[in-house]
Design a protein around this nucleic acid. Sequence first.
DNA 1: AGTTTGACATACGCTCCGTATGTCATTATT
DNA 2: AATAATGACATACGGAGCGTATGTCAAACT
Lengths: 214, 214
Amino acid sequence: MGHKPRKEMIAETRAKLVAAARHAFGSVGYAEASMDDFTASAGLTRGALYHHFGDKKGLLQAVIAEIDAEMLARLKIVSARADTLWQGFVDECTAYIEMALEPEIQRIVLRDGPAVLGDPSQWPSQNECIRSMSENLQKLRDEGTIVAVDPEAAARVVSGASLHAAQWIANSDDPEATSKKAVKAFNLLLEGLLKQGRRIGRPQAPAEMDKSPA
Amino acid sequence: MGHKPRKEMIAETRAKLVAAARHAFGSVGYAEASMDDFTASAGLTRGALYHHFGDKKGLLQAVIAEIDAEMLARLKIVSARADTLWQGFVDECTAYIEMALEPEIQRIVLRDGPAVLGDPSQWPSQNECIRSMSENLQKLRDEGTIVAVDPEAAARVVSGASLHAAQWIANSDDPEATSKKAVKAFNLLLEGLLKQGRRIGRPQAPAEMDKSPA
DNA sequence: AGTTTGACATACGCTCCGTATGTCATTATT
DNA sequence: AATAATGACATACGGAGCGTATGTCAAACT
């Protein structure tokens, strides 16, 4: 039985390192994660890490890139199966909030990432989720659903809002109740983007997710 | 010539440590700031630091509390001199964005703080700015200007939006242009909170800051 | 005056990171 | 096919930084 080809072994090593780091970063945080420890847990040493990723930051970048790609894929699925563009956009935002509730994403991508690598808007992965959101907003603008606004600008403030909503929910004593309040407030903000008259009347009671404008 | 009373000397020492740490954290970041270095720059040693603040995190907390207090004071001034509650709220948000552009605030409070101390919503200083914003929103709701929404929820998503707007602006190649786009998008979101009909008609051209509803 | 308290400095050990070097298998060369 | 060269890792070493344990000295107390 032949050994696996070289390329595969290398890819496997990289994958093992990324997986081990992802677990360590996600559970104890970047600063507390010992390189000796988590490389050992992958059956390797720091030698491999420095060889493949240059340094600890480089590995964090790789981990974030991986998570970011997964997030993007999930978001695409969500927005693709909506009936209208607006509904897809709203659904995508909601999904974004839900993803930001996951501890791994919150810790690695949303907290340690910016602290270690600087502002996400400068990342090479360019926060793919923002791009996706921008594209949707661009279409909504062309379609005439939302007012004239810079798509990227809107995408950034919206993602900021959803991100904080998620963090608030995640750290809340009663995530269920908090989630309802946060999502409602968030949806109100989103409606600020809609053109005059497209906004539907809202009952005072906790409303269902708004149906998209025809 | 008498030496200063004991209490004053101690307070002075604490202040010197906080000031030195604030400068170090703000310029090179929390992780890169050497305790030996910045305590020495204050004419002290780590002994004083551990005595007064327990550890490096404790000092970061003190620094953030100080900055937070300053931010709150500035925001109160801004909102106090507005003609209407809504205008005050909008002004306060704008001021929040502008403050978030300051490197020291951005780095210490918005990036390193959450990474080291966890989610700001759990901080003892409780993010005083959020509280202030919540109070304003509560009044706006009582007044009937905005729709029924949980004030804290709205405050959190709004601060998240403004924060990301600020980071985007701060790291932009052309802060002037980016600022215009970001603030416009942000103001649109804010209008989502207004009651039906209170929303003013918006021209397509980059609008001035909206005048408050009567 | 003697005792106690507490504000700070000094000293020590430990962990962790980055680099420099070594080793062995795979690939390229002739 | 034999040798050279590359590259994927492991090992070894040095340095920095942090936390703690201990020491010192002045101020407050009795």
